[in-house]
Every structure is written in C-alpha cells, then in structure tokens.
Design a binder for these strands. Structure first.
Lengths: 220, 220
DNA sequence: TCACTAATGTACGAACTAGTACGTTAGCTA
DNA sequence: TAGCTAACGTACTAGTTCGTACATTAGTGA
C-alpha cells in the first residue's frame, strides 16, 4: 500500500502536495499499526517523513483525523479487491470458497490493516462512525455472497438458512483471528497460525468449514 | 472479576496489602481494557482506587508489570472455567458443542478480557512471553478437545482430520471476533453481533459450524 | 511496650507530546 | 516578470505523564 515512489529530490525544497500527503499516510499507517492511536507519536511520524510535523496538521488537522484518514485508505484496499472479484461463472460451492480465500489472502497480506481494525475496535469504531466515507457503506462482498447463497439454495446445494452478513462474519472471524491473534495464540499454544508452510492447511480448513456449514445434512 | 468487597474504612489509614493489591488490579483491568496500554494513565488508575500511585509502583513495579499482572489474572478466569467443565458423560457431538458454548459464553461475559487480549496482540504478546505464569501453559480445554476428538473419530462420527489446537482456534476465532470486532462490524454493516436477542442465533451458529465441519461427508 | 518493618502518603521533577504562532518560498498566473 | 498563494519550515509552549525521593504510620513480635 506504499503510495510514494519517487524520492526525487534535487536539492532545494520540492512542492508536491499529493506526494507529501501520501507519504504522511504511508508512514502514519505503519506507525499507528505498530503502536496504536495513543501509542503512536506525531513527532515520530513526522520524523519518518521527508516533511515536518507542521504538514500533518496542515493536511489532516490532527492526530485523530490522521488516524481516520489512515483507516479510510486501508479499508479502500479490501473493498477494491472485493470489487475486482469475479465469481459469477463458478458454481455456488466454488464461488463461496473463492470468496473466502480472497478474505484469507487479503488479511494475510495486510497485517497492518488487521492491526488498525483491532485498534479501531478498542476505540469502539468512533472514527468509522465519524467518517463520511466509511459510515455504513457495507462491503461489495455482501452482495456477491447474497447472490451466491440464493443460487446455492435454489439448486438445493445449500441447506443452511444463513444470511450474507452472518456468513461474512463467519469467514472474517477465521481470517481475522488467524492474523490478529497470532501472537497470543503462538505464545500460549506454541503454534504459529501464520507459518508459511501451514498456509494451505488453514486456507483449506476455512473453505472446508464454510462449505460444511452451508451444505450440512439438516434432515435429522 | 471484582475482587474487592469491603469498603470498610473506619477513619484512619487502613492497612491491607491483599485488598490494596486487588483493588489496583480491578481498576487497572478496566482502565487498560478501556484505553490500551499506552492510552491508560497510571495517575488515572491510582485516582480510581482508594490508595495512591505510589502503591502501584510498590506492588507492581511499573505500568508494564501492572499490565502483565492484569493479563495473568484475566487468563486465569477462563482457564478456571475450562477446568470446571465436565463433558466426559456426553457423546462427542454434544461434548464439542458444550465446549464451544463455554468459550462463547465466557467471551460474551468478559468483553474486558477480549479487549486486553486484543491489546496484548498489538504488543505482539510480549507480556505473555515475559510472564512465567503465562508462557506456553496451554489451556485445559486442549486436553478435553483432544479426548473428544479421539472418541469421535473412533466411533466414526467425526470425519475431519483436525487436531485439538486447530479446532480450538476455529472455535475461538468465531467467539473472539464476535465480541472484539463488534464495533467496526456494527459500524460498517449495521448489525450488532452481540445484540441480546441474537445471542441464541449466534450460539447455535457456532455449534452448527463446528459440528458440520467435524462430521462433513468426506467420501466425495 | 517498644522497636521494627511493611504499608502508605506527599510532593515534586524530568522528559515527553500535541498542537500552534510566525516566518519563508516555490511555482503558477495574469 | 511581478505578485500571489499554496505549501512548507522553525521554534516554541502549555499541559501531561511516568516515576521517585522523602516522610509517615499501622500493626506485629520480642
């Protein structure tokens, strides 16, 4: 998610509002993810950019607004990935599995996003609530899930009476926990949930779990 | 988890090491859960007790050690609940469901514990790692799960080739996410995962999910 | 009952930290 | 090319925050 590419610096002061803003966001993302909202230091964020603290206040207004901007950009990444997903050509079982894997892959690839969301939950989602961009926009994945569920039930494949939001929660919980809680889980049980050689194991486990739930024999 | 009962104060200074220590722990638990390690204030914790900041340093040494002590006590609660669980008389399916419900109930009843664990993960479990009491002690639930899985597989009921730690992760992820991420989930999707009238719905969903996974038809 | 120590209280300081007042300049536009 | 403004830098402050030096006393054991 690094947005700043060119370190082009010719000597004198360079002016590039977009680049300065993006660089602050990049650094702030790492810093907030590392230390939390209260733990992150505005001075430290500024020091890690090419510019000064003054610019953080100039572009974002303050520490909290900067955090909100960081969150907004982090959420836009997964939303884009969900939007780019194409599962219309797949059968319901394969489609759900594909969608679950998308969440699995995204969360694994973006641990900073996971940390930011954890931190935002400590703050009871007040920044999301205050954000025009993030408030109750839902997720592109929800509509996709909804359509797959419809089709799966119609064909008799899916027996579960579950709605899209709950299924999304089920998928997210597994993917989120695996990344977010890997430290305490590893420290307590001696197992690294994100060990590379176990990746396929957990990826398959997620799919198996969701499909088993959706297709379970419910005649008993 | 409140340990301090008697506010007995006769006028002069009262000395009760155990009570003072416990009161600090009670207040610190709430404060750390509310604001995180960096966000919590030692002065604020002290102000909410009957004693002074000096006592925090006297009994715990510092802010970080106090946080570790808070974590240790919080973990001891769920460990005790797991130890008290008796599922030996149940069939494997009922036993697993009962165990999952125990985690579900505990996490719902102890949101502060969930927040503390989230916070500890932001700090990459460094306090657990440094704690003699918490380092790799595992969980009483693991042995229970192990025995149930053995028995379920032997009887042919369970088809899944899963080990106790992974199943524990599956159960925990659902229960943990539901409480830890309820704020962002609610803000984004407009659904309160911890709404009291949905409690039984999610409790059943967890059990259905785990049992479906364990008993799925894997002949195909 | 006397002395000793664990337990407690007070007051303070050094370092940090978010935010801002004020000054400067690059680069665009008329 | 003159001047205007968005973009940027410096230096500072008011308030906070962790931690501690020092003083005090309740309760216990000899």
């Amino acid at each position: 998610m690094t947005s700043v590419e060119e370190p082009a610096r010719t000597g004198g002061r360079i002016r590039d509002a977009a680049r300065t803003r993006a660089e602050i966001l990049d650094v702030a993302t790492k810093e907030f993810a590392r230390a939390g909202l209260a733990g992150a230091r505005v001075d430290e964020i500024a020091a890690l950019t090419r510019t000064t603290k003054r610019m953080i206040y100039y572009y974002f207004g303050g520490k909290e607004q900067l955090f909100t901007a960081v969150l907004e950009r982090a959420y836009s990444v997964i939303r884009q990935a969900e939007q780019d997903l194409d599962v219309e050509h797949l059968d319901p079982v394969a489609a759900i599995r594909r969608l679950a894997e998308l969440t699995f892959d995204h969360h694994e690839a973006h641990p900073d996003f996971i940390r930011l969301v954890s931190i935002e939950n400590i703050h009871e989602a007040e920044h999301i609530a205050a954000s025009e961009q993030l408030g109750k926009i839902g997720s592109p994945a929800l509509e996709v899930i909804h359509r797959i569920l419809e089709s799966g039930r119609k064909s008799g494949l899916f027996t579960a009476d579950v709605d899209a939001v709950d299924l999304h929660a089920m998928i997210s919980s597994f993917c989120f926990f695996r990344v977010a809680n890997r430290h305490t889980f590893g420290a307590l049980f001696g197992r690294d949930l994100t060990a590379p050689d176990q990746r396929e194991h957990y990826r398959a486990m997620l799919g198996d779990m969701v499909i088993a739930y959706l297709t379970a024999d419910r005649t008993a």
